[in-house]
Nucleic acid binder design. Structure first.
Lengths: 179, 179
DNA sequence: GCAGCTAGGTTCGTTGACCGAACCTGTGGT
DNA sequence: ACCACAGGTTCGGTCAACGAACCTAGCTGC
């Protein structure tokens, strides 16, 4: 009954869609996962980028780790600091995010292209499901470069959004050295 | 505020994923849409098949109509009865359901194949994103036949699940003549 | 050594959504 | 007249989400 848990737990549902939604169907969850693909890895960065309540973020991260979607990894000992990275299972969620983003962009009114995704091997913009139209292969997230689109706010308030303005490869962590 | 509405409404988020989740990210919503693809069209059938509270179902159907995902259609005058059918915008959600189902089936433990999807033109089972591996075209939902898989309960309690046991084409309404 | 800062949480009171059960309405059947 | 049924609406209790405040380690500057 855990997560989005339907009072009853999306009940008896043997359906794999219902089982997937048990894990990633709760509010905020897929946005957290999206941010990890974009390079966000730390508690505070999720906070400022998503505007999510702290308690909810803690619960979602814990649930995603429990579900095997994220790994919590110590990246320095003193002070002890952890980061969250995608597991294989988490990486497999990329097509879900792609198809959702495509639907939101193409089917909902008032959409402006915010980000474009390109195959780093050839520079081609990816097709609807994350495949490369030129190379005709499905492109793993690690080989995708994200570039800002026309609709993006050119001067966002939070540093995470600012870091995401530059073209960057997916999964590469945000840098903190510069502003 | 609106739907899944994040207290704040998934806020400023210009991201198309966030915008999509505003519409289909609430509890139950995608399961209702899935059922419409499977041929469910009526209030009572959603009720018994999903086990969703009546008030929540009414709210979700209304929200989906407002969002342009479903159309509410009078199919008889006396007594007045309406059914819910997918719009073009709703039909475009098929890849989202496919990718979610695929993830739930292949990445979550203890999955049993419940349904298979085949291209009616050639009988081939569909690939990961709903394309036909043989014909090499994306298959529209209307050209897909759904067949029960090994993991399905052979004698479900509710009549809707029983009707879904037979191989059937997507979007075709359930028949009510026989048991 | 102690004040202040930062990352990463936890606690708490309020608000709002979800739940299940009961009730309502309009129609048709007998 | 009575009952059944589809399709809702209403209502009280519960549970999750919200936002603000608080807590804990470990630095940093003085």
């Amino acid at each position: 009954m855990g997560p989005m848990a339907l009072g009853k737990d999306y009940s008896q549902q043997q359906c794999s869609i219902a089982r997937a939604l048990e894990v990633v169907g709760e509010r905020w969850t897929l946005l957290v996962v999206r941010d990890v693909f974009y390079g966000v890895r730390r508690y505070n960065d999720f906070l400022v980028h998503l505007g999510i309540p702290r308690a909810v973020l803690a619960a979602r991260l814990q649930a995603l780790v429990d579900a095997g979607v994220l790994d919590k990894r110590r990246y320095q000992e003193s002070p002890p600091r952890d980061e969250y990275v995608l597991t294989e299972r988490g990486l497999a969620l990329w097509p879900v995010l792609r198809s959702l983003g495509r639907w939101g962009r193409e089917e909902l009114p008032g959409a402006v292209p915010v980000r474009h995704f390109h195959h780093v091997d050839c520079g081609t913009e990816l097709g609807p499901y994350g495949e490369c139209p030129a190379c005709r292969v499905p492109v793993p997230p690690a080989d995708i470069e994200m570039r800002p689109g026309a609709g993006v706010d050119p001067d966002p308030a939070d540093p995470v959004s600012r870091a995401l303005l530059r073209p960057r490869r997916l999964l590469v962590p945000l840098e903190y050295a510069n502003s």
